[in-house]
Design a protein around this nucleic acid. Sequence first.
DNA 1: GTTAGCATGTAAGGAGTTACATGATTTT
DNA 2: AAAATCATGTAACTCCTTACATGCTAAC
Lengths: 202, 202
Amino acid sequence: MASKGATLELAVLGLLQETPLHGYELRKRLNLLLGWGRLLSYGSLYPALKRMLRAGWITEVTSASPGVSRRQRIVYKITPEGTKFFGDQITEAGPAAWEDENFNMRFAFFSRTSADVRLRILEGRRQRLQERLDRARTTQPPSQPGGRNGDRYVTELQRHSIESVEREVRWLTELIDAERGGQAREAIGDPRSRHQLRTSQE
Amino acid sequence: MASKGATLELAVLGLLQETPLHGYELRKRLNLLLGWGRLLSYGSLYPALKRMLRAGWITEVTSASPGVSRRQRIVYKITPEGTKFFGDQITEAGPAAWEDENFNMRFAFFSRTSADVRLRILEGRRQRLQERLDRARTTQPPSQPGGRNGDRYVTELQRHSIESVEREVRWLTELIDAERGGQAREAIGDPRSRHQLRTSQE
DNA sequence: GTTAGCATGTAAGGAGTTACATGATTTT
DNA sequence: AAAATCATGTAACTCCTTACATGCTAAC
């Protein structure tokens, strides 16, 4: 039953793994983490938290210690079962991991993913996009299906879409190289790499 | 009632405007037109066609003339009411037109949209993306909300997302310039332009 | 004291998917 | 004759949004 689209649940567990949080704060962080489009609504989040409570992945800890703020809030903590579920899901490098809706979330939690799983997810994602490109390139050239061949705007839209996907493929390739380079360097002790992940200044 | 998400309906009407089609073929064309991700399912398309029949936007024309293929198929034709509805919707240059889910479809039918509406939709879309960028840039720098500041992968994901949006903004700017250039050139009779839409070879 | 933002929820409904069910036609 | 693909649908379900409803607390 919990095999399909547990994206939201997983993201919540991922955040709670770092620190307990209440719903309102959770929503803000989820919007930063997942959402480059629509914002998550409360009507989506709170019922999800209820489901997760019932599943035993999280527990309510009504903020009893009015330390910083005396505002009462319902704080959620991850349970050992929740940690296990998160670990299991995040470790799975199957199709679910490289679908459009899930990939970004999986990527965001890559720090808690082993190197080989990271690599397989990145490669699976690239494969998926590559297939999409192949389909697009073969169905496009002959004649637009929109009646007369080659509506200017339709053509331009498709050109831009293809370019966007190509760009993402290049990005993934760089990341894959970096992952492989990282592994190789770990193995042979070489700190250099051209395709490194940009590290934050510190 | 028909103000919200009539994306699928509109796309169907747009295609039927060119030529009558049956469901199966419609799906294939919609997938090319709209879908750079998920494929439209029959469970979504056929009920939509039923709704549109009830609304009076299309009519069934059971393929009585077995010309090319003697296979019987249900062909849908757009009605005058459907044409009117499509025209009204496609003319509206409001927020609905530059949302993520709708923009591509609106763009795909730009050939049937007047120049001023095209321009307003492109500008609205660019504005929307610009706001998204501003939000992203201001909430990002100080310290990641994910606990310790700057998880490498989260940072990389956000960098790539911002770059993607920036790229789309540049694309829109080029298109806007092209539209304005086109209008200006029409007015003053100058055939030159650097930011022209790529035209198909013919 | 009133506005803005924090905080938690529920009910109704929209939009789509998956899985199922069926059968005709074309290609191999 | 079998397999692929064309073609049309329905039922159950998932996931999410909108709109509503409520009340606290901090800042101006």
